[in-house]
């Protein structure tokens, strides 16, 4: 299968965005508390997985739409955090553009996995960093308090991204690796 241009919104891409958003929105209800006001959110792994599978556009839009959908069912839309989710999803998808990386075909180099882990973590820091800065400017939140919250949330998010997200991508890669040379054992 040929990789499609990342800017081409064919029907499958539209559906991938919608399903990715649904999963992200749904899993946002789950949080494993580790510290006050900070929890491990398994939803972050959806951004890792959908970014890796479908690229930055799907990552960006499923992050944004998923966040809005979650907010719509919980009362208030936090636009700054919508942007954070979107940027994180975009970053998770960057590795998709490497020719040696394809989850669907089970292909990835060690470098690709490292890129996914590192660029994804950076995207989480940058994305939710921007959200925090916006909260300071738009809502007038106290910078020290935001910094503390941001640091805790980033650590939690990176943990989920690396253990759960990258872990699941590795699992999917194994599942999809072509199964040639299989021999029936005695």
């Amino acid at each position: 299968m040929m990789k499609q241009s990342i800017f081409n919104l064919d029907t499958k891409t539209v559906v991938a965005i919608g399903i990715g958003a649904a999963l992200y929105g749904l899993l946002n209800w789950v949080s494993i508390p580790v510290a006050p006001q900070t929890g491990l959110r398994p939803a972050i792994a959806i951004l890792t997985i959908f970014g890796a599978l479908f690229g930055p556009i799907v990552g960006f839009l499923s992050g944004a739409i998923g966040h809005i959908v979650f907010d719509l069912s919980s009362g208030t839309i936090w636009w700054s955090w919508v942007l954070g989710s979107a940027i994180s999803g975009l970053g998770m998808g960057l590795v998709f553009m490497s020719k040696s990386f394809s989850v669907k075909e089970g292909r990835a180099t060690k470098g690709n996995i490292a890129t996914l882990a590192i660029v994804g973590s950076l995207a989480l820091v940058v994305g939710f960093g921007i959200s925090s800065v916006l909260d300071i400017y738009l809502f007038g939140e106290a910078p020290d308090k935001m910094l503390l919250q941001f640091t805790a949330a980033s650590l939690a998010n990176i943990t989920v991204h690396v253990i759960l997200g990258v872990g699941a991508v590795l699992g999917l890669l194994k599942v999809n690796r072509s199964n040639s040379n299989l021999k029936v054992s005695k």
Partner: peptide
């Protein structure tokens, strides 16, 4: 908003209950 992006919202709303059931 381009209609394809807007439609992704519809798909998300549509399949959240199904995915919840799967989950």
């Amino acid at each position: 908003v381009p209609y394809k992006i807007a439609y992704a919202f519809n798909i998300a709303f549509r399949y959240i209950p199904d995915l919840k059931k799967d989950f």
